[in-house]
């Protein structure tokens, strides 16, 4: 349910990792039946994960969800249209930074969280020992998207409610309810770990150039893949196969 919702939204995966890798790195398989004819495919693995600001492919996530740890279930309200993107200007509604505005720098849709730059921070003490008090790190705590923040209207820079509507061209946009202005999705949403804009990607030695990827070399032909390769390699088949039966 959540994966489908995540895929359908306009939110871009900043890490640019394949879905299969994210699932594989998170998976904890404790026991699995052998792939033999006399076994049914059964798996015993972890089903409940505690999602935090540590993303699910990191080692910290693995440490927080070690085998055997049982955490209380976190209730996450379903959100149909995800509406807060990286680079959005939002207004904070709770806490010591109430009323201030900031830019969203990280989106954690598994928990309906966003992290705003420079707001909602607190000091963390890490690395303390008996004779050493530890160091203090300033960390930004996440904010809940349904209760703690509000979008800012770009016409007057005030917080506003909004809804999703369609333009004449059929594009889905966020519209401020107070002024009717479209709140555009920021360009920062398209940034990933690998590039800032798609055309600013620096290609590597094993990458295929874009022109080669888009080149059309397929010619429709009445043959299977194997027949075509045989013809290409000059392999000739003169034998007539004997009749056989499939059952």
């Amino acid at each position: 349910m959540r994966l489908t919702q995540y895929l359908a939204s306009k939110l871009k995966n900043f890490s640019n990792l394949p879905k299969e890798y994210i699932e594989r790195s998170k998976k904890q398989v404790y026991w699995q039946t052998p792939k033999e004819i006399n076994y049914l495919p059964r798996t015993v693995e972890r089903k409940r994960f505690r999602y935090t600001t540590n993303r699910s492919w990191t080692g910290q996530f693995r440490q927080q969800n070690m085998p055997g740890t049982v955490r209380r279930k976190v209730l996450v309200e379903p959100i149909e249209d995800w509406s807060f993107f990286r680079g959005d200007r939002i207004e904070v509604l709770v806490g010591k930074d109430k009323g201030k505005q900031g830019i969203v720098t990280q989106v954690i849709p598994e928990r309906n969280w966003v992290i705003v730059e420079g707001l909602n921070w607190h000091y963390r003490k890490v690395g303390g020992e008996k004779e050493f008090p530890g160091i203090i790190i300033k960390s930004e705590a996440p904010l809940h998207v349904t209760k703690d923040i509000r979008l800012v209207d770009p016409s007057d820079l005030q917080g506003t409610d909004f809804e999703w509507r369609f333009t004449e061209e059929g594009e889905k946009v966020r519209v401020s309810l107070r002024s009717g202005r479209i709140i555009p999705i920021p360009e920062t949403n398209n940034q990933t770990h690998d590039y800032k804009t798609p055309n600013a990607y620096i290609e590597r030695e094993k990458d295929t150039p874009g022109a080669v990827v888009g080149e059309i070399t397929f010619q429709p032909k009445l043959s299977t893949f194997e027949m075509d390769i045989m013809e290409e390699m000059g392999i000739k088949e003169e034998r007539t196969p004997v009749k056989s039966y499939w059952y």
Binding site: N199, K206, T208, P209, G210, M233
Partner: peptide, 20 residues
Amino acid sequence: WQSCSAAALQTPHVQMPMQM
């Protein structure tokens, strides 16, 4: 065909045209 473009055609990206 064996020695043709072993390094290219690896992982694509939509990018500027360059030599293979």
